[in-house]
Computed example of a mutant assay.
Amino acid sequence: MTTLKVSSRIPKKPIKKLPTSIKITDKTTVQDVKEQLAKPGHWDPERLGIYDSSKKLLKDRKAIMSQQESVMADEELLVKDLGPQLSWTTVFVIEYLGPILINLAVPLFLRPYIYRAAAPLSPSQYIAMAMIVAHFLKREYETLYVHRFSLATMPMFNIFKNCGHYWFLSGFNLAYWIYAPSSYTSDSSPTIDKLNIVGIALYLFGEISNFHTHVTLSKLRSKGGTEKGIPKGYGFDLVTCPNYFFELIAWTGVLFVTRSWATVLFMGAAWGQMHLWAVKKEKALRKEFPDTYKKKKHVIVPFVG
């Protein structure tokens, strides 16, 4: 059994009733340590971030503490209050719910109150509504039944940031312009044109392929586990994150149907954020698997970036 000193990562903001030391065994995990530290002050264990002396956060909650060389060298833990937490599942369900409700409410119920003249929805507008709502329903399903998160929670503040992105850009932004009586989608032919058909084909290919890659990623980790692996197979030999590439293809399909700058705006913002995540993922894979990971030059779009 080993005794570790416990200190506040931010001395000016001490944590109430934080123990000055704890004892660990060869089987004590990071999560076990969090629960020990939280018990005296009746804290939510997920609020407590555990750091080594270099102030690096120990993210793997199932890691064995005695195997963390950076901690054992100094025999000291640094602890920080990360603030109120929400589960990743809760945050994702709420952020995706916004676009679903908004893209149903505006075209089906609110158009007479938003626009002065509200002619019936055109076929293209119905198709666009179905594509957008189906996309986010798929995301809800994946959140509940496919994705496996290495971290249990995220700061509660993230729900406002995430909802701001999804509820505004893919909710109000798309709904207001796409379902407007004066939009290109509204003025299109009453029949389904060739561009609609191409858009639907791209959308279905992108969504199905995106789902396939998410299933592949989920199989790298056991349920409730935090282990990491190298994703291989469909799309992963071309770019770091083919799931992002296929999502962009799906939204290109939506763009072909809507032909709206609102869709371009959402896609541009999404691509920018996904590119940052993909670059980070590529760096992480190179660092974690230096001898076995095949480095990728392009992180999202083959031969582009």
Rank of each mutant, 00 (worst) to 15 (best):
I22C: 14
I22G: 11
I22M: 15
I22Q: 13
I22N: 09
K23L: 01
K23V: 00
K23W: 00
T25E: 04
T25C: 07
D26Y: 02
D26C: 04
K27V: 11
K27L: 09
T28W: 07
T28R: 05
T29K: 09
V30T: 08
Q31H: 12
Q31N: 14
Q31S: 10
D32T: 06
V33D: 03
V33M: 00
K34L: 06
K34Q: 15
K34T: 05
K34Y: 02
E35V: 02
E35S: 03
E35Y: 04
Q36L: 14
L37C: 06
A38K: 11
K39V: 03
P40W: 07
G41K: 06
H42M: 09
W43F: 15
D44G: 10
D44P: 12
P45Y: 02
P45L: 08
P45M: 11
E46C: 09
E46F: 10
R47A: 09
R47W: 04
R47C: 11
L48F: 08
L48H: 13
L48K: 07
L48D: 10
G49I: 02
G49N: 02
G49D: 01
G49R: 04
G49S: 03
I50H: 02
I50C: 01
I50G: 00
Y51I: 02
Y51W: 05
S54R: 08
K55S: 10
K55A: 11
K56W: 08
K56D: 11
K56T: 15
L57W: 02
L57M: 09
L58A: 12
K59T: 05
K59Q: 11
D60W: 06
D60L: 01
D60I: 01
K62P: 00
K62M: 06
K62L: 06
A63G: 00
A63D: 13
A63C: 01
A63Q: 14
I64Y: 08
I64M: 11
I64F: 10
M65H: 01
M65G: 04
S66K: 05
Q67P: 01
Q68T: 04
Q68V: 10
Q68G: 02
Q68I: 13
E69M: 05
E69H: 11
E69W: 05
E69T: 08
S70P: 03
S70W: 06
S70R: 09
V71P: 11
V71Q: 07
A73Q: 15
A73V: 10
A73P: 01
D74V: 15
E75D: 15
E75A: 15
E76C: 15
L77M: 12
L78M: 11
V79T: 14
V79H: 15
V79P: 10
K80C: 10
K80M: 14
K80P: 00
D81K: 01
D81V: 12
D81L: 10
G83T: 07
G83K: 05
P84Q: 15
P84I: 07
P84C: 12
Q85C: 14
L86K: 11
S87Y: 13
W88L: 07
T90G: 03
T90C: 13
T90D: 09
